[in-house]
Simulated scan of single mutants.
Amino acid sequence: MKVLNRYSALPAMDGDGVNINRIADFDKLRFDPYLMMDEIKSDNEQDFIGGFPPHPHRGIETFTYIRTGGFEHRDQMGNVKPIRAGDVQWMSTGSGVVHSEMPLADAKKGLHGFQIWLNMPAKHKMRPPIYQDTSKQANPCIDNEHGAKLVALAGSWGFNHDPHEISSSIQGLAGHGAIADLTLAEYGHGTLNLAEYQTVCAYVYQGELNYVDAQGLRETARAGQFLVLDPHDVSHFQTESTGAGLLLLAGKPINEEIVYMGPFVMNSQAEIEQAVLDYQQGLFEQIF
């Protein structure tokens, strides 16, 4: 596994005072088609109890994955869904979505989850929104004999040299996006061939990941670090006594310049101004 770059998530706040750790790049687009990844992880409800009251989006896809606790999602399309531990939710917002995400009252064990933003190609930014979740079905998973477990959250995945491939019910993400949760037991390891993608990233959310860098030096990535990998190198993930949990993001760059302002990501300043005007004039509708 060749690591091209390593970044550390930075503390931030969003919604109604929700504390998060964030990786984002809206300027250089080094993670294209991915724009941002937020991690919420706390046992203290004061860090997330305010949730995310109604707010709009245009021109992006949001992908939410919950590991502990949960949110209730509401949007102007009429979707009212509890998103609980193990669930995935995908919104291709297109021309406009207004939604809210508020903590579930019966989630008593803290909250751990992720929200990922993907850019949309210009030709799709004004299409009708799409909503899908996995609240009524389990995400498919596969184990190898070396203590590695792979859960397909979006797209299709499999271990190298294993003829079995698993496919999530969530397909069609922008930029051919594919997302998975890889957990490694103590001294666990697993190999994935990701050469079909041009963008491959791994976020360490627990434990430590061991690798050798491009100079042949032994390195360790710890929880809260985001790795950009060489997709042309067969990716071998391994850990030692700590074990590890990784969120894997793969895709193909859209390669389009963007302009963004808050929840809107478009391709020109004029399109941003139109998005703001449309929202102010009520064209995004309201949550039911």
Score class of each variant (00 low, 15 high):
A275F: 14
G86I: 02
G155E: 05
S268E: 04
T199G: 08
H189F: 06
D38Q: 02
F159T: 13
P231I: 02
H55P: 15
Q225G: 02
A223L: 02
A185E: 15
F48E: 07
P54D: 07
F52E: 05
C141N: 12
L227N: 03
G158E: 14
N255W: 07
R58G: 06
G96S: 08
H146S: 14
L249M: 08
I170K: 04
Y65D: 00
P53A: 04
A223R: 11
D47C: 10
I60A: 04
T220A: 11
E101W: 07
R218K: 03
D75K: 01
P263D: 12
Q286C: 08
S92L: 03
G94Y: 15
K81H: 14
G113E: 09
S100D: 15
I83K: 05
D233F: 06
G224K: 05
A214Y: 00
Y34S: 11
D25M: 12
V200N: 06
D278Q: 11
Y34F: 15
I170N: 02
S92K: 13
Q89R: 06
M36Q: 13
P82L: 01
A178S: 13
P231C: 04
R22A: 10
H176V: 09
V200K: 04
E271P: 04
A154R: 04
Y131K: 04
T220S: 07
P129M: 07
L182Y: 07
Y197E: 12
Q137L: 14
S92E: 08
T191N: 11
N139C: 14
A180P: 09
W117L: 02
A185D: 15
T199K: 04
H236D: 14
A138N: 08
G282Q: 13
G224C: 03
D133G: 03
L182P: 11
G158K: 15
V98K: 12
L217W: 01
P253D: 05
F226H: 03
M1H: 02
G147F: 08
S268R: 05
N119Y: 10
A174I: 09
H112P: 00
D230Y: 03
Q215N: 12
R22P: 00
P33F: 02
T64F: 01
L247R: 09
